[in-house]
Computed example of a mutant assay.
Amino acid sequence: MSSHPAPEELLLDYVAGALPAGPELAVALHVALDPASRETVDRLTALGGALLEREPAGAVDAGLGTVLERTLARLDDVPVEPKPSSRRHRHPGFEWAPAPLVPHLRPGMDWRRVMGKFDEIRLDLPGDFHRVSLLRLESGRGLPEHKHPGYEYTVVLQGGYTDETGSYGVGDFAVGPGSVRHEPIADPGEPCIAMIVVEKPIVLTGPWGRWLNPLVSRGLI
C-alpha cells in the first residue's frame, strides 16, 4: 500500500474519464503500482453507473463533495473481481516500466542528460498541453530547487526520492501546488525513476534561475 496515495477526488476524475492525457497516465501508473488505489478505482467503476442513475437531476453539480463522500462510504460493499494479468513486451532498459507506460515507449528511445544533473525522456501525448517526462536521478543527485506556477503530478516508478514534503517510494503519488518550492533528491540505492507531469513550465529558484528560466519556459531544458 502506498504511503502517498493519489487524492480520492483525482481517482474519481480518472474513473469518470475527466482527466487530460498526462495526468490520466500518471494516475494509471499509480493505480498499476498501488493495490489499494487499484481496488478503489475498481469499486468506483462498479458504482459509477448505479450512482448516476440514482442521483436526482442536478444533484451531482449541486453537491459533488457530498456525492463523493457517499460513494466512497459505499465502496466496501462492492465486490472486486480479480483481473487477469496483462503482460506486455518491454524494450531493453525499460524492464521497470509498468504496463500502462509500455505503449508510450518507442524502440530506440533513450535518455538525454539535462543540465548535467538528471536524465529525461519526454513523452508526446497528442491533444494534451502538459509536459510529460520520465526523469532519472542517480543516488544522491537532485533536481534543481524550483516551484510550479501550475500543478505537478509525480509518480515514482523505481527507487525513491526525498524532498521538503517527505520521502516517496515506488507507486507513491505527489500532487504539487505551485506555491511549494522543493528540491527532490534521489534516495540511496538504485536510480530513482519517476514520471512527472507539469501543467506549466517550472520556475527555477536557485542562483542560476534568472539565466535558465527563459530556456525552461521555451521548453529547451
Rank of each mutant, 00 (worst) to 15 (best):
T205K: 02
L101D: 06
L44R: 12
R106G: 00
P35T: 08
P56V: 10
Y153E: 04
W111Q: 05
H148E: 12
D13F: 00
V170F: 06
V78G: 03
A26I: 04
E145M: 06
P188S: 09
Y151E: 11
F118H: 14
D119W: 10
A21Y: 01
K200V: 01
R106L: 11
R131K: 08
M109V: 13
R122H: 07
D172R: 02
P92S: 13
I193P: 08
P107I: 06
L215I: 01
A174H: 11
I185T: 15
G206M: 05
P56T: 09
R54P: 02
P92I: 06
L52H: 11
E53W: 09
I185L: 03
R38Q: 13
L19R: 06
Y153W: 14
E53S: 14
G65D: 14
D128N: 03
L137A: 00
R113G: 00
R141Q: 08
H130D: 03
A21L: 01
P191G: 08
W208A: 07
H89F: 15
E164P: 00
V170A: 05
V216F: 05
D187F: 00
G209Y: 09
L68I: 12
G22Y: 00
P207R: 07
G150Y: 00
D119G: 02
G166T: 05
R218W: 13
Q158T: 10
G108H: 06
S167W: 04
A174N: 12
S3N: 09
D42R: 15
E95M: 01
R38N: 10
S179K: 00
T205A: 10
E138N: 08
D34R: 05
E55K: 05
L12K: 07
G48M: 09
P92Q: 11
H104Y: 15
H182K: 07
S85V: 04
V180Q: 07
G17L: 03
R88Q: 14
R70Y: 02
L143H: 04
T165P: 01
V156Q: 13
G142T: 07
G150T: 01
D34L: 07
L134I: 04
H182C: 04
K117A: 15
R181V: 00
D61N: 01
D128K: 00
E95V: 02
E152N: 10
E190N: 09
H4C: 08
S3L: 11
E120C: 04
R131I: 12
L134F: 06
G160D: 07
D76T: 11
V216S: 04
V102H: 07
F118R: 06
D76P: 02
H30N: 13
R70K: 10
P214N: 09
P107V: 08
M195R: 04
V41G: 08
P20T: 09
D110C: 04
R74M: 13
R131W: 02
Y153N: 08
F118K: 02
L51Q: 10
P56S: 12
D76N: 08
F173M: 03
D172N: 05
N213R: 07
P5M: 03
G48P: 01
L68G: 05
A174S: 13
G160R: 05
R112W: 10
K117T: 14
G209C: 07
E120N: 02
P84M: 11
H91F: 15
I193N: 03
V114W: 06
E199I: 04
